[in-house]
């Protein structure tokens, strides 16, 4: 569903934010993209959805090349950015209407779909208010709803749980599950490991722009199981080199 081949990207300088990344996300799977802050998750996602052009490499979405046929490819994607920069002056409904226009959702289908999603996230009351008056979580929710209005085959979310209350975060996970059950693919980034551990079919760990491990959560555990039953967190800390030596820990504790 998503095929990223040998993608690199640097911002002006010589440091690569994403370095020769290869990744393949299959239909019917939830893929968790893990990495510490500044690892290159957002950059990768922006390349995947066509906001940034990679310095090298290519991206295919549902078999369509993102550079050659970008409009067709983008129609396959539903994207939720990390910080939803939405138009403050539009109401939630006007925003959804605009998104539907842009993605070509017929008028007849808009309301039933919108009502279903708005009710799910308890946003039906607020939908007529300007987005400028929304809280952070509400913005996140309207962005999530907007990204699903056109029934994308690939759903890409950048740190979607940030700012959501537990109930909404639970609902979002349910939606992800039902999306892949219908044959779609979900790609989301997070640094919250429990979420990834419970939800994902496969996870990839990115560190300093390089993909350093890709596998199912189970196998990843097996791989690192020599020293007993490790949690994903311990694996994560180990491969990203975040484990501090004993003496440094001691000095932190002072």
């Amino acid at each position: 569903m998503i095929r990223i081949s040998n993608v690199s990207k640097s911002y002006g300088g010589n440091v690569k934010a994403v370095d020769s990344l290869d990744l393949h996300v299959m239909p019917g799977e939830i893929f968790g993209f893990l990495g510490p802050n500044g690892a290159g998750k957002t950059t990768t996602i922006k390349i995947m959805v066509g906001i940034l052009e990679p310095d090298q490499g290519s991206v295919e979405v549902a078999g369509i090349n993102l550079v050659d046929k970008s409009i067709d490819a983008k129609k396959q994607i539903g994207y939720v950015p990390d910080e939803a920069q939405l138009w403050e002056k539009l109401t939630g409904a006007e925003y959804l209407d605009f998104v539907c226009d842009v993605y070509g959702v017929p008028g007849e289908k808009r309301e039933p779909e919108a009502v279903r999603l708005l009710e799910t996230f308890e946003m039906l009351q607020a939908v007529s208010d300007p987005i400028g008056s929304y809280s952070r979580g509400m913005r996140q929710k309207i962005a999530v709803i907007g990204s699903l209005m056109h029934h994308p085959s690939v759903w890409v979310l950048d740190e979607p749980m940030v700012g959501l209350d537990p109930r909404s975060s639970f609902l979002l996970k349910e939606l992800m599950r039902s999306h892949v059950d219908q044959g779609g693919a979900v790609f989301f980034s997070t640094h919250v490991l429990e979420v990834a551990e419970r939800l994902c079919d496969r996870v990839g760990i990115i560190h300093k722009g390089k993909l350093i491990a890709v596998n199912t959560v189970e196998e990843m555990k097996n791989l690192f199981a020599q020293e007993g039953d490790k949690s994903l967190e311990e694996i994560f800390l180990e491969v990203t080199g975040a484990r501090l030596p004993q003496e440094q820990l001691a000095s932190l504790a002072k």
Partner: peptide
């Protein structure tokens, strides 16, 4: 009826964009 949500037909993306930018 959700106010602001179109119920029939479809607007061309480009016109929708102009309209939205103007509104904003």
């Amino acid at each position: 009826g959700i106010k602001g949500l179109r119920t029939k037909g479809i607007r061309r993306p480009f016109w929708s964009l102009l309209r939205m930018q103007f509104k904003v």
